[in-house]
Design a protein around this nucleic acid. Structure first.
Lengths: 213, 213
DNA sequence: GACAATCTTAAACTGGCGTTTTAATCTACT
DNA sequence: AGTAGATTAAAACGCCAGTTTAAGATTGTC
């Protein structure tokens, strides 16, 4: 095994984890290198600088996206309501479960919501837009409106906003609501809530449409 | 005029603005002092350290809260639907319009959502809980559920999450949706959207309730 | 007007960050 | 085996943050 590739791979893996946990600017090169058991100078040797490491992590995390249920264009034959429930459940799962690369990529996105970096455009194109488009297709199928309709877009942004909020405001959430926990069953409950909230609106949208046309 | 009070007041005002714009950790003491035309050492002389300045800013911004429409306990005689629309509109207004102290306080809260500080508990108690409780009262009045009901709480968290999201994810929002602007009329539209989304759910809640009881 | 307490200032200190340098080590090829 | 090139390691650099220091200016009081 070439030591080059080995170190490079270890750095990428560590960087993906640390970036996902802390976000780009809060993550430190020393922290990444320490987790990769590598010298601080190596990220500059292998990647140039911190930002290039970050974009490389994006490429590194890109591959498993093909099998990514949340990003695959939606099969319009399926039940859209159930699809919406499922994708929201998957989004929340990803936001909390720190496992594989697809989840890490997802959490990079959540950090970008809050503090855009120089690689934001790339993140938007690579990870956010697929989810955004899929959500729009599903919501449009439920409401009967166009995926490009203002209401559809607003609804999708509301979904993403709620997921992001539950993902990184849990400390405040728990302060306001002591019974709130971040256990998997609670996540299920939150996912169901977001889905039903959205569905109530989309259903009403459909009704209004048939009435007014 | 005692120079002490003058400098102290200038520092507090500048600190409130900078903290509201950048958040606690992104704001720098040098930036605050420069805006207050004061020496860097003065914040330590007058307040001890950065965190104590921050908590003092919270106290400083507390007073105008009495006249704060968004935090005043809700008069149950009013139309709850209209009250919901109005409070959401006010929240979004505050998130963007950087004017008086009440708005600044509100924006401190939005930053805390994203990156909790050592003063988070204080922020929660002073600025978030009043809004939270008022929203719960209004939502409960619409749905017929208890303000303590899980569904009510989830709904309120969803509202706050959406407001927070629209407040600090505008760069990404605009990347995904080029027509999106942050003009006041667009804000109105977003506020109306969030309100109607919520109302659709709460109305359905009320229906389900009467059916199942 | 002098003195003590208060306030202000310029400058330095400390520490963490990203980055660079320089030298040592390892690998592959003749 | 020996050498060129690629890789690693240790240390230092420059920057900017929060904080501290020690001297200077200002104020109120007798």
């Amino acid at each position: 095994m070439k030591p080059h590739d080995d170190t490079r791979a270890r750095l990428l893996k560590a960087a993906a984890e640390v970036f996902a946990e802390q976000g780009f600017e809060h993550a430190t090169i020393r922290q990444i290198c320490s987790r990769a058991s590598a010298n601080v100078a190596l990220v500059n040797y292998h990647f140039g600088d911190k930002l290039e490491l970050y974009t490389e992590v994006l490429r590194y995390c890109k591959k498993p996206a093909e099998g990514d249920a949340a990003a695959r264009p939606w099969n319009s034959a399926a039940d859209p309501q159930e699809a919406l429930r499922e994708i929201i459940r998957a989004m929340l799962e990803r936001a909390f479960e720190g496992g594989d690369q697809a989840n890490l990529r997802y959490r990079l996105m959540l950090h970008e919501f809050v503090k855009p970096t120089a690689a934001t455009k790339r993140i938007v194109d690579v990870v956010m837009r697929p989810v955004y488009d899929r959500l729009r297709a599903i919501c449009a199928a439920i409401s009967g409106l166009s995926p490009d309709h203002e209401t559809t877009r607003l609804t999708v942004h509301s979904i993403m906003g709620q997921v992001a909020h539950y993902a990184h405001s849990t400390p405040i959430l728990m302060a306001l609501w002591p019974d709130m926990k971040v256990t998997p069953p609670q996540r299920e409950m939150v996912a169901r809530h977001i889905a039903e909230l959205t569905l109530a609106y989309l259903d009403r949208q459909r009704v209004h449409q048939t009435v007014s046309r």
